[in-house]
Design a protein around this nucleic acid. Sequence first.
DNA 1: ATTGAATGCGAATACATATTCGCATTATGG
DNA 2: CCATAATGCGAATATGTATTCGCATTCAAT
Lengths: 202, 202
Amino acid sequence: MRKQPRQRRSRQMVDALIDATAQCITEYGVDGTTTPRIAECAGVSVGSLYQYFSDKDALFEALGEKLAHDVARALKRLPLPESANLHDLVGGAIRFGFEMLNAREGLFLELIRNWHRLPTARVADVLQDHFLELARLYFIKHHQKYPIEDLQVRMFIVANSTLFTMVRQVSQDEGLLRQEDVAEGLTNMIVGYLGGETGPSR
Amino acid sequence: MRKQPRQRRSRQMVDALIDATAQCITEYGVDGTTTPRIAECAGVSVGSLYQYFSDKDALFEALGEKLAHDVARALKRLPLPESANLHDLVGGAIRFGFEMLNAREGLFLELIRNWHRLPTARVADVLQDHFLELARLYFIKHHQKYPIEDLQVRMFIVANSTLFTMVRQVSQDEGLLRQEDVAEGLTNMIVGYLGGETGPSR
DNA sequence: ATTGAATGCGAATACATATTCGCATTATGG
DNA sequence: CCATAATGCGAATATGTATTCGCATTCAAT
């Protein structure tokens, strides 16, 4: 951030700009999100935008920070039934994921699609860490011990498989496959993988 | 294609332009691939480019066609050991996938990363169809019958999970996880999912 | 109220890129 | 060899976008 907003008015403007960025992304896509549009959408001039953000990327970063915060908060409020078995836990997480992708008019969807050219990694990190920790807790509790490294590999595979399969499912407008079926399939696949044995070849 | 290239010289130019497009993508990324650069890289003027391609997208489409063709040919030559078990089959496919992603200086990697804004779906279709057919054959042969729809869901999940997990693995430059471990993990997950039962909840 | 700092503005600047068009060059068929 | 069509060229055009800068407005402290 180029300058700290000291007065109330300017802090509001910074917020409005970040919100406008999100709105433009949902409305015009990442490619159609230009600085003039963001400014107009926020009801602010382009010049003001550059008072507080050194460039367009800084805006996306700020949006990323904010979303990471939001997601972290949403995750904390997710109830974690103590008694739940692995299938229900994973199923719940996946349904939560689909909700997020369909929420906010596809904002997250568009951001994840463009993951490789956006400074939005923080959001992904929050998710990754959360589920890694969750898995650690679960497996400790159930006395199933994997070597740490193996757990990291498994979480990497599970997280990316789930996330991008969901993104692809939500992206195809013609509902070829039912979301519920995909959710159920993913759940089964993951539960089998996480709960099962290490496999024949090692 | 705007005009048919009738003479040998022009047919060569069309090929050179498509090759140049691929080269620019590997060298500068999808975003840095501009029409002037493509033309220069092909040793041809911009004007000539537009003689045969109505716009930049048409070039990407043509590249997609060509790659789809190449991939289809590579797939046909993949040996399919009759005796192989599911684990080896899937493992082979995944190792083939990693090879493709690392081949051609990351051309496929970059294309898949940008899947949502490129007219390159044909390549994915070729892969999808190939593996769907393969799976059908395998399951018929082994007398395990799923309802067709369920097979489609499973292949959708398996294909996307694999593809994007591999892309993510190859994308992270710092080799946090070893490619072999990820390949093995993916294989185990998929074999468990495809070979296992339908799951408790249906 | 006054003054200096903070804030806000948006036309103007500086690129960059896609695409066109009139003209030059080259091939083909007679 | 000639005439005509096909091909090739690249400067020029049109458009869009990021970013700046000098000036106007508002705020906050005295």
